[in-house]
Simulated assay, not measured.
Amino acid sequence: MITKKIASVSALALLAITLGACSSDNNTADSSAASSSAATEQTTASSAPEVLSTASVSADPSVIEKALSADGNWIVGVTQDMTFDKDVTVAGEFHDKGDASADIYRKLALYSQDKDRNVTAEYNITVPQLIVESENLNIVHGTVTGDVLVKANGFVLDGATVTGNVTFEKQEYQDSAKLEENGAKVEGEVTVSE
């Protein structure tokens, strides 16, 4: 029982730090995310990861995969390295801070930070292929080990690395992309499939 309480307190602390990490960037690298105090927690009696209405932050690949779907959230954060055995699709239209009147924006945070917003850890997601169908997806810090297929405008790598190839379905998607923000890089080839 005490172990569960300690784990819950630790998870909440990590969640607060991770959500705070979301406040330092957006598709223009200057917007802030919803604070953890504004988020509404939805928890279960089991040891399942916590899911927030404004963000999904988890160490569970199945939670992250669902959060990246069209039924997910505008911001998704991982809290450790993780591996997906199959392709993962980032789908749906989302808006900055979950506000329908804000710009279209989606964020995948592969890092955690301290209270002063200094990045304290970066995480690796291993996936055969990450398929990007959400407009203005911003992958921030960390590493995507695998390939990325981009089927939407406004794709951004911000301090992140892709070890595989990045393929754009159309030239307009590549033209609208930013692949080198804050030292981001693609180690494989960058191509257009059309």
Rank of each mutant, 00 (worst) to 15 (best):
M1N: 09
T3Q: 15
T3K: 13
K5L: 14
I6D: 11
S8A: 12
A11K: 15
L12M: 10
L12C: 05
A13S: 14
A13V: 14
L15E: 10
A16R: 09
L19E: 09
C22T: 13
N26R: 06
S32R: 09
A38T: 13
A39N: 12
E41I: 15
T44G: 15
A45Q: 10
V51N: 00
S53A: 12
S53P: 03
T54R: 10
S56K: 05
V57A: 13
V57P: 01
D60K: 07
P61L: 05
E65H: 07
A67I: 03
A70W: 02
D71N: 11
V76A: 08
V76L: 01
G77P: 01
K86G: 07
V88C: 02
K107Q: 14
K107V: 10
A109T: 09
A109I: 14
A109S: 12
L110V: 03
K115R: 12
V119M: 04
S134Y: 05
E135H: 08
N136H: 14
L137H: 08
I139W: 02
H141R: 15
D147I: 04
V148K: 01
F155D: 03
L157A: 00
D158K: 10
A160I: 04
G164I: 07
E169I: 08
K170P: 00
Y173F: 15
D175S: 12
K178C: 00
N182C: 04
T191L: 03
V192G: 00
